[in-house]
Design a protein around this nucleic acid. Structure first.
Lengths: 245, 245
DNA sequence: AATTGTCGGATTGTCCGACAAAATGCGCAC
DNA sequence: GTGCGCATTTTGTCGGACAATCCGACAATT
């Protein structure tokens, strides 16, 4: 065989600067909340130009490892918020041509288990928050947008009630992707709101009673119902998920 | 009530440029593979300085929406690879002080369901790939690093066999986080490799027979076994996940 | 025909210097 | 101690510059 070589990779300075700062953050040498040195100071330390530092800082900013408090000037170290991470994953799924069916299926596997866990572990405050979200849907006259938000928020709150950050952050992006199609479904299927509201009521009962088994079952039904709703609405299960939200 | 106003948010130019390009990508106006206009060209179109454009491009690059083919000069539109997304989520979980117990618990809920799905849906090629990964572990003399990689890869391959991108991308980050602690566990518990290898063998049988039920059960046992291993290794379940991988 | 040498234009990586606007910090008056 | 005003820092953006190198085309060689 012919001798082969690895393509040699020289990373640009801005990438190296980024990597250096990232490493400090991941090793917790730089803790969340710590202010980052000023751009000129960083440029001095790394012996590069301020423009180069700025490009590195943009990388940090985008990965959520650094952020600026609203109206603040200096960047501070941050931990990527669930919201940002979820958006990243959502974008990826979006561009990978994920179908509604796939998202639905993933939720069918994950959400019932999450619900069961939430039932035995929810705090009273979390239950109360879920009830508040649920109450919004009781009013049939609220705009469709609000209904969608409430439905999504209910799933999010349930994840929070699991008391498991890893699970919550893994499953949140799925719910986010539901938004655009859910909107269409609610628009087209008049009884959808009532059915969702009712399913949530059953779930809340199970959560109140700390009945994991019941929570799992009701969530299962709830998710199955979603699919039926989509079929009734005439939304193809093979349709790609769209951007939105 | 006094009329109130939202504090108006004037996002910096580089953020606006980023948002503009991002929107074009998410709406598929710009498809994966399309070359992005040159920096000067973008600067001309947006009526900003090239430095500003570059900061925006760094944002794009970091979010995985644009990338450069190795050794290429111009950026091209890309879809965020699973690897990048998983890293983002992993970092977030890391910095949110997620404990091993949380990751384990999330896997306990998700992986068995994923295994069941994989059993009924795997292609022959996917089964073969899993077998190859599994075979690596048969040799007890391979370095610990390789053993860890093989174990992680097995979970990844199983996700792929689900034929569900959404599920795969949601669960991959969890496995990634296993790496550092798994390494320590394998170092300290001599019989760990054999047990993992055996559990994988059972799973492969179930997959070969397309027996979803069996796959779910074996995966459940497999995951439970993990926890036992950690306990034997004396790794605190409450210990924070560490960086690594 | 396929490979190699050469060349010019296009594009990126990095630098420098500059300036306005905004945030920050400090000292001072009260 | 608190609030205010001013000087200082820091960021956002700009313009221009230059070397490196990637790309495509074209000529030369085997």
């Amino acid at each position: 065989m012919a001798t082969t070589f690895q393509p040699l990779r020289h990373s640009p300075a801005y990438a190296q600067v980024y990597a250096a700062i990232e490493a400090r953050i991941l090793s917790r040498e730089l803790k969340a909340g710590d202010p980052l040195p000023a751009e000129l100071e960083l440029a001095r330390q790394f012996q590069v130009n301020r423009s180069t530092v700025r490009e590195a800082l943009r990388l940090l900013e985008s990965s959520g490892l650094a952020e600026r408090a609203p109206g603040a000037k200096r960047l501070r170290v941050a931990r990527p918020a669930g919201e940002r991470v979820a958006r990243g994953l959502s974008h990826a799924l979006l561009l990978h041509e994920v179908t509604f069916l796939e998202v639905w299926e993933a939720m069918r596997l994950v959400e019932p288990e999450a619900a069961a866990l939430a039932a035995v572990r929810r705090t009273d405050a979390q239950l109360e928050a879920l009830r508040a979200t649920h109450a919004v849907l009781a009013d049939a006259s609220i705009p469709a947008d609000a209904a969608v938000e409430s439905t999504v928020e209910f799933f999010r709150g349930l994840g929070e009630a699991c008391g498991n950050t890893a699970l919550r952050m893994a499953k949140d992006p799925l719910t986010r992707l539901l938004r655009p199609t859910l909107r269409r479904m609610i628009d087209r299927v008049p009884q959808a709101r009532r059915r969702i509201h009712e399913a949530q009521a059953r779930l809340l009962e199970a959560l109140a009673a700390r009945d994991g088994h019941a929570a799992r079952e009701w969530m299962h039904k709830h998710i199955r119902d979603f699919r039926r709703g989509y079929e009734i609405a005439g939304i193809s299960l093979q349709a790609r998920i769209e951007a939105g939200g």
